[in-house]
Write a protein that binds this DNA or RNA. Structure first.
Lengths: 242, 242
DNA sequence: AAGTGGTCTAGACCACCAG
DNA sequence: TGGTGGTCTAGACCACTTT
């Protein structure tokens, strides 16, 4: 009836954004039950069908999940491996074991021309560079170098990175930004010296090199990530070392 | 009003299946305009909203696409690289060049115990084994070995494989089955002898090894694929050979 | 029994595209 | 201008879960 469209955005889009905001602000925690569709409809002064459309979209985006007869809930925050193919050793049917993150550090730097173009930044724009190490059952399995536009994430706090489960979770919790993979590429390479040292592996040892561009739900590119992964074969040879 | 549910399936599910069947039977070709939502609603004796729900699901599955003000169309058939990350050399923003398929052959074989379990088959069940080679700008970039349950695809015809753009397109066109990736895994390996020969590369040369399980829209596992990919680094060394 | 999400209808108006 | 998909409403009944 009322709630006259503020910006020519569909009502369900406005509702989605308000719900996303509340999730980002932790007004609703993970796995917390949302008000019913009818309650939300009354809060937002729209029909239940419109709320339903908004919730369905958010479920498809992985922000919420539903259980028939019980209600609608807030999904777990994304971790940095969300939507990524398995690279862990072992059978295909196994879920990858919970990965443990080690925060190596954050620096300020400047984007290369190519990276600036990819992220839609000015030439030489300032960026955050974050390094993470991933362990599985104690063994080092991957090294990440993450690049974020500094302008957008100026307030980024080192303590958040140390405490959180990953960069994506930090961006969601503190900036209300939910990322998804926009483009990615795999290569087989020999490990460069610096990365080999950090991974405690031999220089030139074959590894997976994973490049990934991530965007927010509006399609704005926001994160560039390079990941060096030790795969099953490597895992074997590494066991012999220890 | 009528169309009393035949199998306790929601009306929109029945409509989805009927539309999928017509697409599989090529009653509607790729990029062909479907009847309007109101026409379909009348054909199926349901409301326009129910047709809309069915079409929206099929759009999300990639079977159809919509254009505001014009209509709803049949999407291009899937190719064997659908939903797969880029592995081609070059920049991330580039679309991978159109890959050219070379059909190497098809054999009958028997599933290993592990593969039988993965595909939900009896121990030692008969399977099709298909080999494909992929070229990009003339250069060999990948080798596929595809395993399909023979029971489900007994009528598979070699001519279809020779003429079509890929295995997924054949399954969609001739069996009405649309696949999607269920699980996948990447590894960096040295090429085994046989695969190295087929790829015209050196044995032991580092390459990406990609394992993939695909399922139909009902979640039934139907395809196992192993793919050896030569990545950018390799592409360089191969240029020197020629 | 009460409350939730899941399905379905009938009708309305809008935004976009074509002739 | 007419037809299409896009949005929105108000109401109904069903299936499932919890109390």
């Amino acid at each position: 009836m009322n709630a006259k469209s503020l910006l020519r955005l569909p009502l369900y889009e406005q509702i989605k954004q308000q719900i996303l905001q509340r999730v980002a602000d932790s007004e609703w925690d993970s796995n917390e039950l949302l008000p019913s569709e009818w309650d939300l409809a009354e809060q937002f002064s729209v029909s239940q069908g419109t709320v339903r459309k908004a919730l369905t979209d958010l479920v498809n985006d992985g922000v919420l999940y539903r259980q028939q007869g019980r209600g609608t809930f807030v999904a777990e925050p994304l971790d940095d491996w969300a939507g990524m193919s398995m690279v862990s050793p072992g059978m295909l049917r196994e879920k990858p074991d919970r990965l443990v993150r080690e925060f190596l550090g954050i620096q300020r730097g400047h984007a290369s021309d190519e990276l600036a173009a990819t992220l839609g930044l000015r030439r030489g724009a300032a960026v955050h560079r974050i390094r993470l190490l991933w362990r599985q059952q104690g063994q080092i399995v991957a090294l990440d170098e993450v690049t974020l536009p500094l302008e957008r994430f100026e307030a980024l706090d080192v303590r958040w990175l140390r405490q959180s489960v990953g960069v994506w979770a930090v961006l969601q919790q503190h900036f209300g930004v939910r990322l998804r993979v926009k483009a990615e590429q795999w290569r087989a390479i020999g490990l460069p010296r610096e990365e080999a040292q950090l991974l405690h592996a031999r220089e030139g040892e074959p590894a997976l090199f994973y490049l990934r561009l991530a965007e927010d739900m509006q399609g704005q590119a926001l994160e560039w990530r390079e990941r060096w992964c030790l795969t099953g074969t490597l895992g074997l040879s590494r066991q012999q070392e220890q």
